[in-house]
Computed example of a mutant assay.
Amino acid sequence: MDIEELMPQQPEGGKEEQKKSPLVSLEKDLDLYAEALKEVAIEIIVEGISANPIFIAHQHTVSIGEVILDRKELSTDWTIQASTFEEFVEKGIITPEKKALFLRSYKKPEDFMCVFVIVPEGANFIYYPYKNKG
């Protein structure tokens, strides 16, 4: 699932009266964090911790993964924590019957960050491309 699918569709020059989706600020933060997140993902893979790094984006407190980018310290909207497929299975977020499906849909970690986005309405996985600076 791409971030665009989660964002409300607005016509060009849409009215600001509509409540802005929190995913607009998430996209901005992911672009800002992209280089650091890619380095962490590659480190997780190279060190043999996991072939499937997962980042958790949230605005509250969650008890999975380790904080790598704190929104309070960085004056951004989202805190990012690093985790792995294995931890998600261990914590029961990815159930045994969904493991194969998740791994089949997992995109290349060199090209996409796998982000588990937690908002008050729920949580979902998105794959967000690392954008090349230029």
Rank of each mutant, 00 (worst) to 15 (best):
D2E: 15
D2G: 15
M7K: 15
Q10M: 14
P11Q: 13
P11T: 01
K15M: 07
Q18E: 13
K19Y: 01
S21H: 13
V24G: 03
S25D: 14
E27D: 06
E27N: 07
L30G: 05
L30C: 09
D31H: 11
L32K: 11
Y33L: 08
A34S: 15
E35A: 13
L37Q: 05
L37G: 09
A41Q: 11
A41W: 02
I44C: 06
I44N: 03
I45M: 15
V46Y: 02
E47S: 14
G48F: 08
I49Q: 09
S50W: 04
S50R: 00
A51K: 14
A51V: 00
A51I: 00
N52Q: 09
P53G: 04
F55S: 04
F55V: 03
Q59M: 11
H60M: 08
H60V: 04
E66R: 12
E66Y: 08
V67Y: 01
V67W: 00
I68A: 07
L69N: 02
L69M: 14
D70H: 12
D70Y: 00
E73S: 12
L74W: 07
L74K: 07
S75Y: 04
S75N: 14
T76F: 03
W78R: 04
Q81Y: 00
A82K: 07
S83Q: 05
S83P: 06
T84V: 03
T84E: 05
T84G: 04
F85Y: 15
E86K: 09
E90R: 13
E90W: 04
I93W: 13
I93H: 12
I93G: 03
I93T: 07
E97P: 00
L101V: 11
F102V: 13
L103Y: 00
S105Q: 14
S105A: 13
Y106I: 03
K108H: 08
P109M: 02
E110L: 14
F112N: 10
M113C: 14
F116C: 04
V117R: 11
V117E: 09
V119A: 11
V119R: 13
P120I: 02
P120D: 11
E121Q: 15
N124M: 11
F125C: 06
Y128D: 07
Y128M: 05
P129T: 08
K131P: 01
N132Y: 04
K133S: 13
G134H: 10
